[in-house]
């Protein structure tokens, strides 16, 4: 039983580290692959905007 909890503790540390590392690496990769302009291009109320775009004949 001692072993079980030790393994679980280490597993939690390693799992947490792996997940965080994965997210950080992914974020860095995304930053490199896409332009900042595109990444921050989201607009509030995009529904209406898209409809307006369509109406605008784009």
């Amino acid at each position: 039983m001692e072993n079980f909890w030790d393994i679980l503790t280490w597993g939690a540390w390693i799992g947490a580290a792996a997940l965080l590392l994965w997210m950080i690496l992914d974020a860095i990769r995304v930053n490199r692959e896409y332009s900042e302009e595109l990444l921050i291009s989201s607009r509030e109320g995009a529904d209406e905007l898209l409809e307006a775009d369509k109406k605008g004949g784009k």
Binding site: M1, E2, W5, T9, W10, A12, W13, G15, A16, A17, L19, L20, M23
Partner: peptide, 18 residues
């Protein structure tokens, strides 16, 4: 198993949900 360190589980919970 007395005195289990709760911290790894706290961090793991936050990490996996994030």
């Amino acid at each position: 198993h007395d005195g289990l360190d709760p911290r790894p589980f706290v961090v793991f919970t936050v990490a996996i949900l994030a």
